[in-house]
Simulated scan of single mutants.
Amino acid sequence: MAADTVTVLISGFGLGLYVPGLLIAERLKRLGVAAETCVFETLIADKQEQVLKSRQACHRSFQVAQFSARVPMDLSKSMDERAVGQLLERWEEEGRSEFIALSGHWLHVLDRYRERVFPRAVHAEIVYVDCGLPPSWTSVKHYDPSYADRYREIWIYDAGVKRLNHPIVVADASPPSWDERERRLIVHGGGWGMGTYRTKIPELRELGFSLDIVAYELDEGTGGGEEDRFYMVDPAWTPWRRNADGALMFPPLGEIRDGRADRFADRGDRHALFDVTSRTMAIVGKPGAGTLIDSLASATPLVMLEPFGEHEKANAGLWQSLGFGIPYEEWRAGGFSAEVLESLHDRLSAAGRTSGTDYAAHYAKRRRTADPT
């Protein structure tokens, strides 16, 4: 029944706060816990086009992206009051009481809901999927420094003691071994295609690496080497678009062939790019939240490029200290060694077998045994 449903609150501003939320919801369902995801952009319908334009601008200029990360955003006044009211009314009628928030943009809505249903108990926790606060949460902290006093906070990593607290599961099956992998690298810029990844492609090609490259505009999917493959997410898809069953979708992925990409697949249980990643020797890209999740879950080393913001800088520090990743320049200085990548893979594989309870299982266990808070 709806009252028992865990509501997972995500945002499409960046896929690092979108895909992990869907993964948590899918994992909860496999554990027998009803879960629904809600995406923040449905509450700012008249700003959705602006979000898409911002994504394009950040893809085309990493400097623009870095600057935007430092500007606090208060979106509480941009929300459609009618949409917010309808959502709060539905939650109240259904008796919703359990929430997991990955994006700070939802905090204002959660605060209003708690006030609306008081004295009914509302159990809500904030899940941080980075080692530091990403922009949506730094913005909240800028305007409301004590926000965390009202909610339970969960960090899936603890950078201070270099520990994986509660990783996010992508697939239940074990990742491929090193010998089962293709001699390829996957090169991308995270969900928005940000960073310096495109500048590394010519050098990697010259060294003889076969590449799986994620393109973010169709004209980026041409001119590769004979063994290169290009992928892209359906350009018609948006994170707030639901499928025929009314569910939010993982980014539908297609391969670009002959200058066209017209067969886009959504697995339903996880993002299709994860399966591409799992077949490669390493990810070459910035250390975003989603990339770290894929790296650990697939035991695929991360060759780290320039981070986006302080939170990704902290991510890079943790991955390097745990032996899961290596800065690109350091890998270059070592002669682009495959043996180095294999040793990083081995550490990731071992960590996947020995790390603590994953977040969704941890949540489900607390839910069975006691109050979620």
Rank of each mutant, 00 (worst) to 15 (best):
P119K: 01
A236M: 08
G225N: 14
K29R: 15
P167R: 04
R114P: 06
Y363H: 12
A261Q: 02
A299I: 07
K141F: 09
L344Q: 05
V170A: 07
L9N: 14
R229M: 09
D219Y: 01
L9D: 13
M304N: 00
P202T: 09
A57L: 08
Q86L: 14
R347D: 08
W91R: 10
A265P: 06
P252Y: 02
S343Q: 00
R96L: 10
I44P: 14
G285Q: 02
S349F: 00
A25M: 15
Q320G: 04
S321N: 08
D234H: 02
P134M: 01
L17M: 13
K77H: 12
F230S: 14
I100K: 05
S54Q: 09
E49C: 11
D294G: 04
E255Y: 00
R229E: 15
P287T: 13
L341K: 04
M249S: 05
L133H: 05
V214P: 15
G225P: 08
R242N: 13
I24Q: 15
A297S: 14
D258Q: 10
L318T: 13
V117M: 10
P134S: 10
T357Y: 01
Y157T: 06
R367K: 07
T196Y: 12
H345E: 04
P72F: 10
Y363R: 11
S337F: 06
M1W: 01
A247G: 09
G285E: 00
G224Q: 12
R181Q: 11
G193T: 05
T5D: 15
Y231F: 15
H311A: 03
E89T: 14
R368N: 06
W237P: 07
A282M: 11
P252Q: 03
D258R: 04
G16S: 15
A289D: 14
A272C: 07
V127Q: 07
A299L: 14
A69R: 06
G317C: 00
E255T: 00
M232G: 12
A45F: 07
P307S: 03
S76F: 02
E41A: 07
A173Y: 03
W331D: 05
R30A: 15
E36C: 13
S278G: 07
W178L: 04
R120L: 00
T373P: 10
E153C: 10
P239G: 06
S54K: 09
E217G: 08
D111L: 02
S76I: 01
C131V: 00
V303D: 07
L133W: 08
S177H: 10
Y151R: 00
I10T: 12
P307G: 02
G325Y: 00
